[in-house]
Design a protein around this nucleic acid. Structure first.
Lengths: 166, 166
DNA sequence: TTTTGTTTTCAAAAATAATTGAAACCAATG
DNA sequence: CATTGGTTTCAATTATTTTTGAAAACAAAA
């Protein structure tokens, strides 16, 4: 397998995985393309590289910037924008955690808190109260853990992983 | 908020969260419905409870069984099947990890291994090799960690969480 | 064997999500 | 200011995913 084929496979696979996780496939492919690019790319290069339209490229580049996974670079004397991906994988993981926590975990937690109002005057509906309480406890733990992870640095990350796998 | 309204909110929210994570919304709603149900439900009760068709209910109940999140129960003397959800949240988390790891992490890891063939005769394309190597290392760590998690019991789970949040 | 109650299947329809492309916009330059 | 090179927007289209519902399959009971 040569580099070109390898890149191709990587981009495809990264896109597939993302779409399994509810993330736009093309967004992930743009991300992958930038990850394996030796230098920052222009919107046109992204369009060509993935055979997608200008609108699509633009939308997904913006989304990636919004997620904090891609940055813009302006070359002096040039008018067009260049895009490059954050390549420190620990930063990448952290950005993804920050984004998904905010958009998905926190709203769920909010609902669980609301619903916990019911839980207060419990035994009426045993299983409902128990389940909500359990999920809420678990989610709160997850929330706190993620907060810690977000604040932690890369070496700490390795340390905890090492601990976990013994 | 009364219990009915609480259940409703919970089911909606569980479904929303699932669809954010690339899981069929209705599947998650069926799961939520069964989680908060005091007893096992029939397919018809699920259909009524969520206003969905028989085919849809059947498909998603099967999928939940496949994920190991729901079980079938046959009441003696009765012809129809009853369904109930696993309510031990640690088991639920574990089943989800098992399923998603197999379907999503492992295929990605396989591709990374293949692509690592390119990595072998590296410096040709610096960034590609570095990125692939980093992601591969990270994925392998995640894979091992999840294996440990899967084997671990609930108390261990709490312990590690406790450690993480200090 | 036939009837009856139930589950399963799957092609077609509906709903949802992603993509296109051309027009509008923006700002640097002549 | 008008032009040029580039970015953004978004209604319409296209692709993908989900759902329906009726027919087929199954299996217990008559």
């Amino acid at each position: 397998m040569d580099i070109q084929e390898g890149k191709q496979k990587f981009i495809e696979s990264w896109g597939k995985m993302a779409s399994d996780w509810g993330i736009n496939r093309t967004m992930a492919q743009v991300h992958a393309l930038l990850l394996v690019a030796p230098d920052a790319l222009t919107a046109d290069e992204v369009m060509d590289g993935l055979s997608i339209s200008r609108g699509n490229a633009n939308m997904n580049l913006r989304a990636l910037i919004d997620w904090g996974l891609v940055h813009k670079k302006l070359k002096s004397g040039e008018r067009k924008e260049y895009f490059y991906a954050e390549k420190d994988m620990w930063k990448v993981v952290r950005q993804i955690i920050i984004h998904r926590k905010k958009k998905e975990l926190e709203p769920m937690l909010k609902v669980l808190d609301e619903v916990a109002g019911v839980e207060a005057n419990c035994p009426q509906s045993e299983s409902f109260c128990t389940v909500v309480k359990d999920i809420r406890t678990l989610s709160q733990k997850a929330d706190k853990t993620l907060d810690t992870l977000i604040k932690a640095d890369s070496s700490w990350f390795s340390t905890i992983f090492y601990q976990m796998v013994r």
